[in-house]
Amino acid sequence: MSLDSPQTATRHERLTAHEALQRLEHERASRLTQLRAIGEAGPDAEEQVMAAQKATIGRVLKEVEAAVARVGDGSYGLCGNCSKPIPVERLEILPHTRFCVPCQRDTV
């Protein structure tokens, strides 16, 4: 499955565990790199902005870790609310998501 694949029809298949783990590992590495950069920014950085960024990155990192656990238990790609498959296109964009779009809207 490629991000370059045509989007002419909605795909209903699920990402393989390998594909999901690749995307999640990329997300994890990106967030950890961001956290290290914030830690190295030094005293000249704006503390409030840095704290907000760090909190956001930490939250996303926890979501990525939870998604890795879902891959392990076989529930990855299923909506945590309605239990229907989350469209592959959504998982390609946001690999750590727990909800399909309609259920995400309901949780906001």
Results as ranks from 00 to 15, higher is better:
residue 12 H to F: 15
residue 106 D to I: 07
residue 16 T to Q: 14
residue 93 I to K: 14
residue 12 H to W: 14
residue 2 S to R: 03
residue 70 R to K: 09
residue 70 R to P: 15
residue 87 P to R: 05
residue 56 T to I: 08
residue 75 S to C: 04
residue 92 E to T: 03
residue 6 P to S: 13
residue 47 E to C: 00
residue 37 A to P: 07
residue 91 L to W: 01
residue 59 R to Q: 06
residue 11 R to G: 06
residue 27 E to H: 10
residue 65 E to W: 00
residue 104 Q to W: 08
residue 50 M to P: 01
residue 79 C to T: 15
residue 67 A to D: 14
residue 80 G to F: 02
residue 8 T to M: 07
residue 19 E to A: 14
residue 91 L to R: 00
residue 38 I to D: 11
residue 11 R to S: 13
residue 16 T to I: 10
residue 80 G to I: 03
residue 51 A to N: 09
residue 64 V to Y: 06
residue 69 A to H: 07
residue 89 E to I: 04
residue 49 V to D: 11
residue 11 R to V: 14
residue 99 F to G: 03
residue 78 L to N: 06
residue 27 E to A: 14
residue 61 L to Q: 09
residue 33 T to P: 04
residue 68 V to C: 00
residue 3 L to I: 12
residue 24 L to D: 08
residue 64 V to R: 03
residue 11 R to I: 14
residue 10 T to Q: 07
residue 42 G to T: 02
residue 31 R to M: 15
residue 44 D to S: 13
residue 1 M to P: 11
residue 47 E to H: 02
residue 8 T to S: 11
residue 19 E to D: 10
residue 15 L to V: 10
residue 44 D to F: 06
residue 98 R to C: 04
residue 54 K to G: 13
residue 4 D to S: 10
residue 25 E to D: 14
residue 2 S to K: 02
residue 29 A to P: 06
residue 63 E to L: 13
residue 73 D to E: 02
residue 83 S to C: 07
residue 5 S to W: 09
residue 13 E to H: 15
residue 54 K to I: 05
residue 56 T to H: 07
residue 26 H to Y: 08
residue 100 C to N: 04
residue 30 S to Y: 12
